[in-house]
């Protein structure tokens, strides 16, 4: 029973597990770069999900060819092309911000930054 479930739906399971790994690393890591890597894993999981949905049985890749009868659904591929571009730009913005944070704080660890902020507030009050 459980084996059937796993074999029948392995692509969804893989996508969800990847997604959870991504979410976990975003939440648990204090290092900002690792958080960004987590985000990338998250978006990769979604890409995997969409692409696996687009598969048609016995279908070929959605590229025009002479002797092919059935194609996969090309729409999710196109959508994911957009999602990849979005992912690239988010990563670029995130890395740019991290460079700036590193410049100002001298660290990219979250708890160290929080410490610096708290110390500054105490100085402000005095």
């Amino acid at each position: 029973m459980i084996i059937d479930f796993i074999i029948g739906k392995y692509n969804y399971l893989a996508a969800i597990i990847l997604m959870l790994i991504g979410l976990y690393s975003v939440i648990i890591n204090g290092n900002l770069i690792k958080k960004v890597i987590g985000l990338n894993i998250l978006s990769t999981a979604i890409i995997l999900f969409y692409i696996s949905v687009s598969k048609v049985k016995d279908g070929s890749a959605p590229i025009y060819a002479r002797d092919v009868i059935r194609y996969d659904n090309p729409l999710p591929h196109v959508l994911m092309l957009t999602a990849i571009v979005v992912g690239v730009s988010i990563t670029a913005v995130a890395l740019a911000i991290i460079i700036k944070i590193r410049e100002y704080y001298g660290t990219i660890e979250e708890d160290e930054m929080a410490e610096i902020d708290i110390n500054e507030e105490i100085v402000d009050k005095k």
Binding site: M19, I46, Y50, P76, I90, I97, I101
Partner: peptide, 23 residues
């Protein structure tokens, strides 16, 4: 910079959920 990064993380997770739901 810090709050922008915070927003980036949460906003991206939110948008990923939306796109997964649309999927």
């Amino acid at each position: 910079y810090r709050s922008s990064f915070n927003y980036l993380i949460l906003g991206t997770i939110g948008a990923s959920f939306v796109v997964l739901g649309i999927g």
